[in-house]
Design a protein around this nucleic acid. Structure first.
Lengths: 218, 218
DNA sequence: CAAACTATATATAATGC
DNA sequence: TGCATTATATATAGTTT
């Protein structure tokens, strides 16, 4: 629609291309606005010139998030579902692990917790401290990595991945607290039933290196 | 451009509107494709009919994530920065809390941990158990809520919010483990220094309700 | 070089089947 | 109801200023 018919193929003359781009861009946006008004539709147009400059148009009241939300609901599902599967499997795996832990825990409750020696206690404490630190670092790495490869449709993926990490973390913590508290409880109980000693009122004496639990400093 | 000129305003007749929508939609997409080819541009058109059905067009090789990445880079920053501010402030607040906790912890180390009585121990344990459960529920709620209001540009927001929740959670856990381990350590140490008793080799006797630590079941 | 100007190609509103 | 036709409005390629 002009003085002459043109073939639809890349315009090689750069300044012609530039002019045509500006004209047609305006035309496209005008048409988008019109269909929006005439047909009561939500329309979005996003254009990047070959130079990488962004031009866009959205029907009024149509925010980007809104369009994208709808978009994702309508067309993102398939893409997402693929990612979803692998993560879901992983979460199932963790859940199963959790169940196993529950069983093991019930078993532990019947065992002789008092047979735990201070040395083992130190090891456990260190494991707790390190485990916590490592897991937190891991989580941070996870975040950083994901933020680098940031892509729209991986949003859900990320949330699930984080959720999974947190589930693992919660598992560790739950077990740790249970063990610690159980040991404390048995210790005190044993103390009260097997002797008439009462905790001293004063400040505990200086501890020696490696003698009893170390208090994590981080 | 038709038999008669029309005013650009919503077409009230529903079937006319439907027909016009179909025609103009095709036209819009054709024009988008043309500008893409002629001017070597990346173009995306997203259209939702008033019935909510999605139609879209993307120039070949232009994936949604790619367009969006570019889009966000070009125009999403301001939106995001606003959200960022409030969450960043919150994270700073939590960090400060963390520092205070460190100070309080150092103070606690110097105090008489042994003055803690079993009753208090039970209370602490319950607090730990409940605290953990509540926090995890809270995290889940957080996720659910965010997934409901899911919006593209809030992705970062979500990650930060989660990170914040996790930081709080880590704080609680860290403190909890420290307290539990410290108590265990002092208990054992006190036991060994103040008496010659050794832990019994057999299975611990049946515990009574509320007597010593309860083991969380969830 | 950009803005304004036409001549013409295209899109499409109204109509017909 | 939907698809094809056609008269007309619009978009725009090439041209001029």
């Amino acid at each position: 629609m002009g003085r002459g018919k043109i073939e639809i193929k890349r315009i090689e003359n750069s300044s012609n291309r530039q002019v045509t781009f500006a004209k047609r861009r305006a035309g496209l946006v005008k048409k988008a606005r019109e269909i929006g008004v005439l047909c009561d539709a939500e329309v979005g147009v996003v254009i990047f010139s070959s130079a990488g400059k962004l031009y866009d148009f959205w029907t009024p009241k149509t925010t980007l998030p809104r369009i994208l939300e709808k978009y994702q609901t309508n067309s993102g599902k398939i893409l997402w579902d693929e990612k979803h599967k692998s993560i879901s499997a992983e979460i199932d795996r963790v859940k199963k692990e959790n169940d196993n832990m529950q069983i093991e825990l019930r078993h532990m409750k019947g065992e002789d917790v008092n047979s735990l020696q201070p040395k083992e206690l130190i090891a456990i404490e260190e494991a707790l401290t390190n485990g916590q630190t490592n897991l937190r670092d891991k989580m941070m790495d996870h975040w950083k990595m994901h933020r680098r490869n940031e892509k729209m449709l991986e949003e859900e993926h990320k949330l699930l991945a984080l959720r999974m990490t947190c589930i693992s973390f919660c598992q560790l913590v739950k077990w740790s607290i249970i063990r610690a508290c159980t040991m404390v409880a048995y210790g005190y109980r044993w103390l009260r039933t097997k002797s008439n000693l009462r905790p001293p009122a004063g400040r505990p004496e200086q501890r020696h290196e490696g003698d009893g639990a170390r208090v994590p400093s981080g």
